[in-house]
Design a protein around this nucleic acid. Structure first.
Lengths: 148, 148
DNA sequence: AGGGTAATGAGAATCTTTTGCATTTGCCTA
DNA sequence: TAGGCAAATGCAAAAGATTCTCATTACCCT
């Protein structure tokens, strides 16, 4: 039921300290219902998906809301290559990304050793970590296999 | 002597398979003479430096040349946070970055353990690595010390 | 030195993201 | 539950970064 979905997202927004407005609910819904293959979406993609289901929400609002979600810790913004940022719903633990430069597929991974080393490196340089981003670019198995 | 500098950069360009034009020589010179504190420059910054020494080179050319340099392996483009790319001359070995979100300082580091783990992760996922980028964001010692 | 080709400059165009402002909506109180 | 205020939204314009177009200029080869 849509109403139950909405009810849940309303609570999430309230908990994040954000007023539960319709645009915010819709955007959060889009992010939560995204499949693995499209967990990483640009503002434009969210905009198009919402237009597709004829909830017209202004692009400016999408940007504003995603930025607020980021500040509230609900989503993470990634500056992968390509000139536009992509957003991902925060769920589960922190992870890094490996993406295919041919087909654009994005996969996630967690590596405790790397996490640990990063902490050490920051300490050695006298930094307090606020964030970090590790992205491996490569060619995925499928793309190596053939079709391009 | 400037002429010796030019002579050297000319050779570098030729070796990279690029015609040795004046704009390319000037841009390469700027990159090579940059201090550690400004090894990572945006196209706009290169443009301003060149204007400062009254070699007026169009911004479009800066972008074109930097992109060619990247393709030729002379420089690396980084998409740090902040909406604009920065370029860095390739010299010495590969390295990653740790940067201060307060003052913008960028430092470099190399960690063999992390490099190794990345290779393993790529292999586990069936990828052939073409590139990777690890950036740690934090607050440097100086900025923690005081002056916001 | 002369010519063909590739490179450059300037500005227009494009793309992504932000902002200003009038209008609307969520939420709290009476 | 209605009323009102502050916050949120939509639209259009602006801003910032990067790319493209095309006429002009500069390399490089012979």
């Amino acid at each position: 039921m849509v109403s139950k979905q909405i009810a849940m997202t309303t609570i999430e927004l309230k908990e994040a300290g954000l007023k539960a407005t319709l645009p915010r609910l819709k955007i959060l819904e889009i992010l939560e219902s995204s499949t693995d293959a499209q967990r990483h979406m640009s503002a434009e993609e969210v905009y198009d998906l919402l237009r597709g289901q004829d909830d017209k929400i202004g692009l400016a609002t999408i940007y504003r809301v995603l930025t607020q979600f980021e500040a509230a810790g609900l989503v993470t913004r990634h500056n992968f290559e390509g000139g536009h940022a992509v957003f991902e719903l925060n769920q589960g633990e922190h992870h890094d990304h490996i993406l295919c430069v041919k087909c654009g597929r994005v996969e996630e991974f967690v590596d405790e050793t790397i996490e640990q080393r990063q902490q050490n490196i920051a300490k050695e340089h006298g930094y307090t970590i606020t964030d970090h981003s590790l992205t491996i670019y490569g060619i995925c198995g499928e793309c190596q296999a053939g079709k391009v």
